[in-house]
């Protein structure tokens, strides 16, 4: 099995577990999902929640006053009569921080969910380095690559969190940091569930203080996703993402939309042709600029290894990236 297939299996497995654990196994949410008034659900968390011990979080300078907990948001008609995102404060889905931290199985479950979301997000940028540089990783199996990837992700997130030297000032600075790039881990991750348009496929997102990077699932005719509904409802789901990104909880300036190139070509072209008038801007992939200046190296320049391990390569070339002002 090549890395792409392996990766997609990996994502799908985690995704089913996430949907089950976060959405379906919760009676309250199950009811919400069944209700036609609810157009979308998003679940987000700051990576500080990965630290199990509340005291340790405080100790590390993550003053809880400054940090949002994980939260569900619901997209539905508000009292003013239009569709809007609002935090759902129902008892059954309140964040674990407010509960006794001694409820350790539940806490473990939460932590497992966080990691699944982070890995499913970051793993989309994992590229098949063999494709670009056959000699480099010829002997590394997909299983091995995924293991390395997991380790790499944990260490990147860990180094953001565990830096004991961070004082509150630095933390605040970091929380305000903004990166246009998909490359960096972010301080917040989320999943967005819009069953009306994307069926049971999740949208993964990460954000900092300016950009919300949202990854659309692969959209193709043979998948279960309602293909026509995505094209015909472009305005509705895009508006939903714009509202989420600019909502008071996020308050971000830009939405970056990542459309997988393995999606149906017709869909991609249709999206591109429509997006101009609703203010979408096409963003070049990061690694493929100026490649012609060294054509003989063009096989290598896609490799963007961030760690010592040559087997791992991350890039954004799986995606067509569009940016929207919010």
């Amino acid at each position: 099995m090549d890395i792409e297939n392996y990766k997609s299996d990996y994502i799908n497995k985690k995704e089913s577990r996430l949907i089950n654990s976060l959405l379906i196994s919760n009676e309250y949410l199950k009811e919400i999902i069944a209700s036609s008034d609810i157009k979308g659900i998003s679940y987000n968390f700051p990576i500080q929640n990965l630290i199990k011990n509340k005291n340790k979080r405080l100790h590390n300078g993550y003053g809880l006053d400054n940090i949002d907990d994980d939260q569900f948001f619901i997209y539905s008609l508000n009292t003013s009569g239009f569709l809007d995102w609002h935090a759902d404060m129902h008892d059954d889905i309140t964040p674990h921080n407010d509960r006794s931290v001694t409820d350790s199985t539940e806490l473990d479950q939460h932590i497992q969910n966080y990691w699944d979301i982070i890995q499913n997000t970051e793993c989309q940028f994992l590229s098949n380095s063999q494709h670009f540089n056959p000699e480099n990783t010829i002997n590394v199996s997909p299983q091995k690559i995924m293991k390395l990837f997991q380790r790499d992700t944990v260490s990147k997130i860990g180094s953001l969190l565990n830096n004991k030297k961070l004082d509150l000032q630095t933390i605040k600075g970091l929380l305000n940091y903004s990166s246009t790039s998909w490359k960096n881990p972010c301080f917040n991750y989320s999943i967005i569930y819009l069953p009306e348009y994307f069926n049971d496929s999740l949208l993964y997102a990460k954000y900092d203080s300016t950009y919300n990077h949202v990854i659309l699932p692969i959209i193709s005719n043979d998948k279960q996703i309602a293909f026509n509904s995505i094209i015909n409802n472009l305005k509705n789901w895009l508006l939903c993402l714009l509202e989420l990104t600019s909502s008071s909880n996020y308050n971000l300036k830009f939405l970056r939309l990542y459309i997988n190139r393995n999606s149906d070509k017709y869909l991609i072209m249709t999206l591109l042709r429509n997006i101009n008038w609703i203010n979408g801007k096409l963003i070049p992939n990061e690694n493929n600029l100026n490649w012609l200046s060294s054509p003989e190296n063009s096989n290598n320049i896609h490799n963007n290894t961030n760690n010592n391990d040559n087997a791992l390569a991350y890039n954004d070339e799986n995606f067509i990236i569009l940016e929207f002002e919010c």
């Binding site: 508006l239 714009l242 600019s246 609703i278 919010c326």
Partner: peptide, 8 residues
Amino acid sequence: ANPCKASS
């Protein structure tokens, strides 16, 4: 004349 206006 934006056909897709968010509240913001």
